[in-house]
């Protein structure tokens, strides 16, 4: 507890991340009032539970992990009327965009650079900044499906029914998200 940030400093630092939290909540809930509530609950929970914040982790990451439970709860409680999901567009399910990466035999065209985990904490936050930028560039439904899986940790069956997509379309959405993130990092971090 000695290590806890002073309340006013924490309030200030937390407020900085409000827009990002709102954006993350909106992708999932598609309802501004619901997203606002969830962000509000998250910030309150952070202030109340500030003793559990460890300084070596980033405030942003800590907030995102608190909000994870709030978003799951909002989705599952059916407290809110969530906008019905339109199925992903053909474009979002089109894996041909990655054709350029492979030759006709399905082999990589381009020599890959090996990048490794960031070594220092400065490098770590630089990496996460690039990763965050790459995440925000994912198409909307791709992002929603991907974040349901990798952030919220939902099972694929739950995601399929929430998003009204077939197992094979979900598989494609998740594949596209991962391929796109790898490519984005390769272009913006790897070289």
């Amino acid at each position: 507890m000695d290590d806890a940030l002073p309340l006013d400093q924490l309030e200030e630092e937390i407020a900085v991340h409000r827009p990002l939290l709102f954006k993350l909540a909106m992708v999932q809930l598609q309802n501004a009032a619901a997203a606002d509530d969830v962000v509000q609950e998250t910030l309150l929970a952070a202030l109340i539970g500030r003793g559990s914040f460890r300084r070596q982790s980033q405030i942003k990451t800590w907030l995102i992990s608190i909000m994870r439970h709030k978003v799951l709860d909002a989705i599952r409680s059916q407290r809110y009327v969530l906008a019905p999901t339109t199925p992903p567009s053909d474009d979002e399910c089109n894996v041909a965009v990655f054709d350029a990466l492979f030759d006709t035999n399905g082999c990589w065209m381009d020599a890959k650079d090996a990048w490794t985990d960031p070594a220092s904490s400065a490098e770590q936050s630089a990496f996460l900044k690039v990763l965050e930028a790459c995440l925000t560039r994912l198409p909307e439904r791709t992002s929603r499906a991907f974040m349901m899986r990798e952030w919220l940790g939902m099972e694929t069956s739950e995601i399929q029914s929430l998003l009204n997509v077939s197992p094979s379309n979900l598989r494609i959405l998740l594949y596209r998200a991962r391929m796109q993130l790898r490519l984005c990092l390769d272009l913006n971090w790897g070289r």
């Binding site: 982790s57 990451t61 800590w62 995102i64 992990s65 994870r68 082999c107 990589w108 381009d110 020599a111 890959k112 650079d113 090996a114 990048w115 490794t116 985990d117 960031p118 770590q124 990496f127 996460l128 990763l131 965050e132 990798e150 952030w151 940790g153 991962r178 993130l181 790898r182 990092l185 390769d186 790897g190």
Partner: peptide, 23 residues
């Protein structure tokens, strides 16, 4: 060698995502 590097990239990506999400 291409896939060996690409698979390391994916491993880093997945680890860093968990870091970013605090998981």
């Amino acid at each position: 060698p291409f896939c060996s590097r690409a698979s390391v990239q994916f491993e880093v990506l997945f680890r860093q995502l968990e870091m970013y999400f605090g998981r």
